[in-house]
């Protein structure tokens, strides 16, 4: 027969167990973003230009190939690395040269970066270059943005207009 002292002890133990589970399951609160901050996310997936030009095979060259391989126009698969640079109010936030993905380096270059910034008006400049380094940046977006606290501003690359867009 369980004694009164043991019963009380078990009650305390179970209560402590429940309180511990209940408390740490959702407390204490974690402050991730100060009340006056906003978030800027730069993310895109964009394939650089091909590293070389396409060319046409001559009839002699085609004749040497198996019938099912006789493609007249041949393009190199490899892509250029994509360079990207983000600055906010003239201050450089991010600069990277992104290598193409894929075993043959023939797929898109991708980026994802999150920045925590003060809310308010900022001058944003983001640039991208998808050709040889000598050609520099080929797409540029410069714009003032007004960020409210807690806002998430997404900077993505729109293939349709070949430039960055803000969301």
């Amino acid at each position: 027969m369980i004694k009164l002292g043991q019963f009380a002890g078990q009650l305390i133990a179970y209560t402590l167990f429940a309180v511990t589970i209940g408390y740490f399951s959702a407390s204490p609160a974690y402050v991730r973003l100060a009340p006056d901050q906003a978030v800027v996310k730069l993310s895109f997936s964009h394939a650089g230009q091909s590293v070389g030009d396409c060319y046409e095979r001559s009839d002699e060259e085609l004749a040497k190939l198996a019938p099912n391989m006789r493609e007249r126009v041949v393009c190199p698969r490899e892509r250029h690395a994509v360079s990207v640079e983000l600055s906010l109010d003239g201050k450089l936030m991010y600069r990277e040269t992104l290598q193409p993905s894929g075993m043959s380096r023939d797929s898109a270059s991708s980026a994802y970066r999150r920045f925590t910034v003060k809310a308010g008006r900022h001058f944003l400049k983001v640039q991208l270059g998808d050709r040889s380094p000598e050609e520099g940046y080929t797409s540029v977006l410069e714009q003032y943005v007004e960020l409210v606290p807690g806002q998430v501003l997404v900077i993505d690359f729109d293939e349709g207009i070949s430039n960055f867009i803000l969301k």
Binding site: Y30, V31, R32, V152
Partner: peptide, 20 residues
């Protein structure tokens, strides 16, 4: 709402201790 950042959150510390 992915358009609004998470500012203050009550974490389950048993599982998410390393997230901060």
């Amino acid at each position: 709402n992915l358009d609004i950042a998470v500012s203050v959150i009550n974490l389950d510390w048993f599982y998410l201790l390393t997230y901060p």
